[in-house]
């Protein structure tokens, strides 16, 4: 048991190191794909940390991401860049905490609806405030390169995986597995279910905000519609579920194929990305309820049972 854990960690570190070499070997196209994959890995993995065990579907990723983007956009002229990332993380966590306090006591439907509208709410408020100050968008001019962004995202991904690994072994992680199975039992066993859910929901909130802050220099020009694209939330949900939330590495298995598929579809049929999203949702519900992870595991079990008979 103990040795497996160290092996997992070592394997993760090696993979991360290999991935970090991409800017030296891949061209600019591959680097940009790499940034996209790293970004979605960060978002989908942190999403699954909360939504996997609790079964609450969060559509708030966009809201947190946009807040992070705006943190960089507004702060870049006043504060050093490295200070902005933790600030974005704190803002994201605080917003997630507030949303959690208001909705996580209630059933999952209320949570979905609230998070669905959250990005739009924040966007409308920012647009309204900007109309007052008369500016439409913000320029983020830095000398941060695409490779820098890529490395930062990889670093964040490393932190997310490490964090997820630690949570999985902590009392909080154990509490969440119990809550996911039966909330009544959880409460009667002495778990403060509302607090556990709110604390864990702050993780994807903070991570998505930091990811937004990291990516802001890539956009150069930030405006509300760009920072708060509603599609982002849905893409993250699809990738995480497609991969499977039962394992820490599950979302990654969904992110990679989906990113390529998405790139291909948006290159040849830019209007059909919505249709693709819709079909993926249906695919997940009817054919892959446990994602690729579930598929891999049932194939493995099947192979094992055949071995047993042979």
């Amino acid at each position: 048991m103990k040795r497996d854990a160290w092996q997992d960690l070592a394997l993760g570190a090696v993979l991360l190191a290999v991935a970090a070499c991409l800017p030296w070997f891949g061209g600019s196209y591959w680097l940009s794909i790499g940034v996209t994959i790293a970004m979605y890995t960060v978002l989908a993995t942190s999403w699954a940390l909360f939504s996997g065990p609790t079964h609450y579907i969060s559509l708030a990723t966009t809201a947190f991401f946009g807040i992070g983007t705006y943190t960089t956009g507004l702060g870049i002229d006043h504060l050093p860049y490295w200070v902005l990332l933790p600030i974005a993380g704190v803002l994201g966590a605080v917003l997630a905490g507030l949303v959690g306090l208001a909705t996580l006591r209630l059933s999952g439907v209320y949570f979905v609806i609230f998070t669905l509208g959250l990005a739009e709410l924040v966007r409308q408020i920012i647009t309204w405030v900007q109309n007052f100050s008369g500016q439409k968008g913000l320029y983020v001019l830095t000398d941060i390169t695409e490779a820098d962004i890529y490395w930062q995202l990889l670093g964040l991904a490393g932190i997310v995986f490490l964090g997820g690994w630690a949570i999985g072994r902590s009392r909080l992680g154990f509490a969440l597995r119990i809550i996911g199975d039966d909330e009544t039992v959880a409460r009667h066993s002495g778990i403060n279910t509302a607090r556990a859910k709110v604390i864990l929901f702050m993780v994807p909130g903070a991570v998505a905000a930091i990811a937004g802050a990291i990516l802001a220099p890539r956009y150069v020009y930030i405006e509300p519609l760009l920072a708060f694209t509603p599609m982002l939330s849905f893409q993250v949900v699809i990738m995480a579920l497609l991969g499977g939330t039962g394992r820490l590495w599950g979302p990654l298995v969904g992110v990679i194929p989906f990113t390529f598929l998405w790139e291909a579809i948006s290159a040849s049929f830019p209007n059909q990305t919505t249709l693709l999203l819709g079909l993926c949702f249906l695919l997940i519900v009817y054919l892959l309820p446990k994602g690729f992870v579930g598929l891999i595991e049932s194939v493995r079990r099947w192979a094992k049972s055949r071995e047993g008979y042979a």
Binding site: R177, I178, G180, D181, D182, T184, V185
Partner: peptide, 10 residues
């Protein structure tokens, strides 16, 4: 509990 409640996935 009157109707047994266990955690099915554990």
């Amino acid at each position: 509990f009157q109707l047994v409640r266990l955690l099915p996935s554990m």
